[in-house]
Nucleic acid binder design. Structure first.
Lengths: 99, 99
DNA sequence: CCAATTAATGAATATGTATTCATGTATTTG
DNA sequence: CAAATACATGAATACATATTCATTAATTGG
């Protein structure tokens, strides 16, 4: 397995973003359908401010993308590949429980 | 996508481990074949101590497994699923470069 | 325009963690 | 057994980052 230094860092930065439970929950919550920030706040039980901060990071890494609709902003997982990888790993975690 | 709180945390802890470039490099370096700690030190250009510390974390999460042979200890990626996910994402990073 | 709602931001803090340095442990060889 | 090699560990430090609090910006409805 070969990998350049740049790519290594790039990759680890994505993992780092997925490595916080709150942020991971946020990403998962808008993996299948668009969710408003308010929705995400409710689902994750995190403060509005914290959710916004995390969303900014996820946006910055292009892991989610925003769509403004009136005063609400809807977020959705940006990349299908990320979604699939996530689903795979979630399934993996589920399987482990069944052993 | 449903996921329990426990699993969310478990999953984010795995990502957190992959989220450090040095540790990710270490894991990648022993993804296909066993590598001694010394080999890993050479490949990653990190200090022996740092490599050992990271290996302990990776061991703790069962991401790698050790095998002692004389004075050397060989490490290898523990789980095929992790390896596959990693390969997928590395391939993904490669593809992005070609766009 | 004003008030209300929804989201984003900046600064401050508290906590976590990557890295180093010095040292300790296991194993082999002479 | 002594010395050398290969790896692990603990404490200390430096750095990063998650979270909160207070405030600001954007948008809509009255």
């Amino acid at each position: 397995m070969k990998i350049e230094q740049d790519q290594l860092i790039e990759l680890s930065e994505v993992f780092k973003l997925l490595g916080d439970p709150t942020r991971l929950a946020i990403l998962i919550s808008c993996m299948e359908e668009e969710k408003s920030v308010g929705d995400i706040v409710l689902m994750t039980q995190a403060s509005q401010s914290l959710v916004s901060h995390h969303l900014r990071l996820l946006r910055g890494a292009r892991l989610v993308r925003p769509r403004r609709a009136g005063r609400q902003v809807f977020y959705k997982a940006h990349d299908a590949h990320i979604s699939c990888t996530l689903k795979d790993m979630i399934d993996h975690v589920h399987e482990e429980d069944e052993l």
